[in-house]
């Protein structure tokens, strides 16, 4: 079993990564960091606070990063999905949709949503 973290270059994601490491250590599981933007971000260490970490990202032809994160979660048989969320206006979400909402609603595993600070 693994814990999977959605990562971008936002403060929310940094918080999610910290929470993910914490969660993985608590559960004594591996951590998979999924780079949603398709670029490998720092840190890239294979251990974070003693937790073994592996990295993934959407395939080069992928147009739906959220979808491939959910696929990756299913493939690893993840026990937790960790994401960072931020406040957005209802209009913004109505017009453009929300990755966080899609992940929360469509994931088949429990989702841990954290905020920065």
């Amino acid at each position: 079993m693994t814990v999977i973290v959605a990562r971008t270059d936002t403060p929310e994601s940094a918080a999610a990564l910290r929470a993910g490491v914490e969660e993985a250590r608590l559960r004594d599981e591996d951590l998979v960091v999924f780079n949603l933007d398709g670029v490998q971000l720092d840190p890239t260490d294979e251990h974070l606070d003693g937790v073994p970490v592996s990295f993934e990202m959407p395939g080069p032809h992928d147009r739906d990063a959220v979808g491939s994160l959910l696929d990756a979660a299913a493939r690893h048989g993840a026990s937790r999905l960790v994401i960072g969320v931020k406040h957005r206006t209802p209009t913004g979400k109505l017009l453009f949709g929300s990755m966080a909402q899609k992940l929360l609603l469509e994931a088949s595993v429990p989702v841990l949503a954290v905020k920065p600070n």
């Binding site: 929310e12 949603l36 453009f96 990755m99």
Partner: peptide, 10 residues
């Protein structure tokens, strides 16, 4: 184009 930018909220 806008969605690609504004939708990122994780």
């Amino acid at each position: 184009v806008l969605v690609g930018r504004a939708r990122r909220d994780v």
